[in-house]
Design a protein around this nucleic acid. Structure first.
Ligand SMILES: NC(=O)c1ccc[n+]([C@@H]2O[C@H](COP(=O)([O-])OP(=O)(O)OC[C@H]3O[C@@H](n4cnc5c(N)ncnc54)[C@H](O)[C@@H]3O)[C@@H](O)[C@H]2O)c1
Ligand SMILES: NC(=O)c1ccc[n+]([C@@H]2O[C@H](COP(=O)([O-])OP(=O)(O)OC[C@H]3O[C@@H](n4cnc5c(N)ncnc54)[C@H](O)[C@@H]3O)[C@@H](O)[C@H]2O)c1
Lengths: 231, 231
DNA sequence: TCCATATCGATAAAACCTTATCGAAACTCC
DNA sequence: GGAGTTTCGATAAGGTTTTATCGATATGGA
C-alpha cells in the first residue's frame, strides 16, 4: 500500500490531549445548555485553567474546525469530540474484584455517559457471589474466562488484591481480553498486544505529596531570601 | 543569593519518575525479603516491564548510587527512595465526601505504608455524620474549615459530587489547604500556590478505550495490507 | 467603508521525557 | 593476573508535548 497523500490513518492523539478532551466536552455541553452557538479557545482555557494554544491544538486533534474571531461551533465540536473519543459506540466491560473500590466503580453512573457499560462483576468471595450491587450481578470468579470469551469482552477493570493481580490478568489474557484498567499497585506482565492503563492511586498521592514538599522548600527559600533566619 | 556552584536545591524530579518510584520500591522490598543485597537496573526493568536505562535515570534522581557490575545496594536504595519520597514523614489528610469512592479510600490500608494518615472524613449527609467508617470518624462538613486550620492539614482528598466540587474547594483553600487530590471530573479553580492532582477516572478509561480502538484499526490495516478486502 | 481586535491555523521554538552511546569500574572465570 | 562481561554514570541523541509566533480571516464599531 503506497503512502497515498490522503491517507486517512488518524495520527495517534497524544495521551495528555485525550485526558483533557473530557473537560472540554463537559464545558462545551454547558455552553450548549446556555444556548451559546460558539465557544472560543480563550473561553475554554480560562474556564479550565489551561493554555489557550493548547486547547486549540487539542481541538484540532479531534478534527473540529473553528472560525477566526468566532470560535468553534458548539454542536459541531461536541460531535467531533464524541466521534473522536467514541462516546457513541458502547463498550461492555467486566469488573474483577467487587471489594471496596470495585463496588464504588459499580455504583458509579458516570461511565454510561461516555459509552461504557459495566455489565457484571466477578469475585472469589462466596458471600458476594450471587448477589447484586448497584443493579450489577456479582458472579463467581471461575466463570470469568468463559464469559469474557463468549461475550467478546474487550476491556476489564482489575480491582482485586495485589496478590491476585497477575493470576487474574493471566486468566483475562488467555480469555482474549484486549485492555485492562488496572487499579492494583502491580505492574502486570501482558503480551504486547494487550493494553494496560495503570491507575496507581497511591503513586498519584505520593506525587502530590512530593510536589508539596518541593513547593515548601521553594517558598521557604524565597521567603528567607539571603537571610539566614534560622540556624 | 548568588547561584553558588554547590547549590543543593534538588532539581525537581519529573512526575513520570515519581510515579514509577513506588514500583521500584515495592520490588526492591521483595528483593530484601529474598535476602538479596544488590539489585541491578536490568533486573528491575525486566521485572517491571520497563527500560533499564530509564530505571537507572529514575534511581539516580533519588540520589541512590550503584556500583558497576554489581547494581544498587538494596537497603541503601530503599532508604534513598524513602528519603526522596518522604515516606517517613507522616502526613495527616482529610477526606471530603464519604460516598462510594470516599469510603473505598477510607477503607484502604495502603496509605499508611507511604506515610499517609487519613484522619477524618467530612460529609454533608446527616445520616453519615457522627458515624465511623473503617475506624475513621465522619464529621459534619461545616466543621471542615475550622479543623483544617486548627490541625494544619495540608492535603485533602476531594470525593464529593461534581456539583459541590468548587464550593468545597473554596472552603478548603480559605482554610489554608496546600494540596488537593481531586477525584471529581471538575477542573478546580485554585490560587497558584495550591496544588491539585486530578484523578479523573473516567478520562483514564476513555484513554484506554481510544487506544484500544487505535490498535484495532492498526492491526486491521496490517492484516488487510494492500488487499481491499471490504469496500 | 475601513480600522481595530479577537481568534484561528500553520509552523517554529522551547521544554521535557525517553532512549542510545560510550568509557570506566568491578566481578567471574580461566 | 588478564580476558571477558555486566553494569554504572555521564552525556548525547531522539521523541513528544507545550508554548510562542505570525499571517490570515471574520466581526463590530467609527
Ligand atoms: N480501596 C482503595 O481506595 C484503593 C486505593 C488504591 C489501590 N487500591 C487497590 O485496588 C485493589 C482493590 O482494593 P479494595 O480496597 O477494593 O480491596 P478489597 O479487599 O476491598 O477488595 C478486593 C476484592 O477482590 C476479591 N478477590 C480476591 N481475589 C480474587 C480473585 N482471584 N478473583 C476475583 N476476585 C477476587 C475479594 O473477594 C474482594 O472482594 C487492591 O489491589 C488495592 O491495592 C485500592
Ligand atoms: N464512584 C466512582 O467510581 C467514581 C468514578 C469516577 C469519578 N467519581 C467521582 O468521585 C466523586 C464521588 O463519587 P461517589 O461515587 O463517591 O459519589 P457519592 O454520591 O457516592 O458520594 C458523594 C458523597 O459526598 C457527600 N457530599 C455531597 N455534598 C457534599 C459537601 N458539600 N460536603 C461534603 N460532602 C458532601 C454526599 O453526602 C456523599 O456521601 C464524584 O465527583 C464522582 O464524579 C467517582
Amino acid at each position: 500500500m503506497s503512502p497515498s497523500p490522503n491517507d486517512l490513518t488518524p495520527v495517534a492523539i497524544p495521551e495528555p490531549t485525550l485526558k483533557r478532551l473530557p473537560y472540554y466536552y463537559k464545558f462545551i455541553q454547558g455552553q450548549r445548555e446556555a444556548r451559546r452557538e460558539f465557544v472560543s479557545c480563550t473561553t475554554l482555557a480560562e474556564a479550565l485553567g489551561l493554555n489557550a494554544i493548547q486547547v486549540r491544538k487539542d481541538l484540532q486533534a479531534t478534527g473540529a474546525v473553528g472560525r477566526p474571531k468566532v470560535g468553534y461551533h458548539v454542536e459541531a465540536t461536541l460531535d467531533a469530540i464524541e466521534e473522536c473519543m467514541g462516546y457513541h459506540n458502547t463498550q461492555d466491560i467486566f469488573l474483577v474484584g467487587a471489594g471496596h473500590l470495585g463496588q464504588a466503580l459499580l455504583a458509579y453512573p458516570g461511565f454510561s455517559e461516555f459509552g461504557f457499560n459495566v455489565v457484571a462483576a466477578f469475585d472469589s468471595d462466596p458471600a458476594k457471589v450471587g448477589t447484586e450491587f448497584a443493579g450489577k450481578p456479582i458472579l463467581e470468579a471461575s466463570r470469568l474466562s468463559d464469559l469474557v470469551r463468549r461475550m467478546h469482552i474487550q476491556i476489564a477493570i482489575l480491582a482485586v488484591p495485589a496478590t491476585a493481580a497477575q493470576t487474574v490478568t493471566d486468566t483475562l489474557v488467555q480469555a482474549g481480553i484486549r485492555a485492562i484498567w488496572n487499579f492494583t499497585p502491580t505492574r502486570l506482565a501482558v503480551p504486547k498486544e494487550v493494553l494496560v492503563q495503570d491507575e496507581n492511586l497511591l503513586a498519584s498521592l505520593s506525587v502530590l505529596s512530593k510536589q508539596l514538599e518541593n513547593s515548601r522548600v521553594k517558598s521557604h527559600k524565597e521567603s528567607t531570601h539571603g537571610k539566614p533566619e534560622e540556624l
